[in-house]
Simulated assay, not measured.
Amino acid sequence: MFDALTLATGVAALLLAAWCGWAAYRDQPTKDWHFIGMAVVTVLALVQLVGGIVLLVRGEEPTQSTTIFVAYLLGAFACVPAAGFLSLAERTKWGSVTVAAGGVVLAVLEVRLYDIWGA
């Protein structure tokens, strides 16, 4: 798959997690700037989703199951937006904690996607 894109998405997700973790440490909810960061990470995950589907349509295969690969692509795409929506419901520091956890989960999903593709 796209190694640079996978790395960029994982690093961006960890940076978002650190940023929101810092906000939670300071007892702050997610702010507008955090949502811009979430949008950037989500766009990276969307590009990865489209790129992965294009690779599958072209006939390339992951070393593991294609179904698992697509499921991880969809999960990676939905991870940060889901955390963002949950942080809107919880307008305390725990909303920031939720987004930080979503960023860490996305980074782990990126590592797993890298493994599933067979790099």
Results as ranks from 00 to 15, higher is better:
residue 102 G to V: 09
residue 28 Q to S: 01
residue 103 G to A: 09
residue 26 R to L: 05
residue 90 E to N: 02
residue 67 T to K: 13
residue 86 L to P: 03
residue 86 L to F: 01
residue 9 T to C: 08
residue 74 L to P: 10
residue 81 P to E: 13
residue 26 R to D: 12
residue 108 V to K: 07
residue 91 R to F: 12
residue 56 L to M: 12
residue 10 G to F: 02
residue 12 A to Y: 02
residue 27 D to H: 15
residue 25 Y to A: 12
residue 23 A to Y: 02
residue 3 D to V: 06
residue 49 L to D: 14
residue 84 G to A: 05
residue 55 L to T: 13
residue 33 W to V: 02
residue 20 C to Q: 08
residue 23 A to D: 15
residue 60 E to H: 13
residue 13 A to T: 09
residue 119 A to G: 07
residue 13 A to E: 08
residue 20 C to I: 03
residue 1 M to L: 04
residue 38 M to F: 01
residue 115 D to Y: 00
residue 88 L to W: 01
residue 68 I to T: 13
residue 106 L to C: 09
residue 11 V to K: 10
residue 9 T to M: 09
residue 10 G to V: 05
residue 61 E to A: 13
residue 52 G to E: 03
residue 110 E to G: 10
residue 103 G to W: 10
residue 91 R to S: 09
residue 38 M to S: 00
residue 15 L to H: 14
residue 117 W to E: 06
residue 82 A to F: 08
residue 109 L to Q: 13
residue 87 S to T: 14
residue 106 L to Y: 04
residue 62 P to D: 12
residue 6 T to A: 07
residue 84 G to S: 04
residue 32 D to A: 15
residue 45 A to C: 12
residue 2 F to W: 06
residue 19 W to Y: 13
residue 14 L to R: 11
residue 118 G to P: 12
residue 113 L to Y: 03
residue 92 T to H: 06
residue 65 S to T: 05
residue 62 P to Q: 03
residue 95 G to R: 15
residue 93 K to M: 11
residue 23 A to R: 00
residue 97 V to L: 01
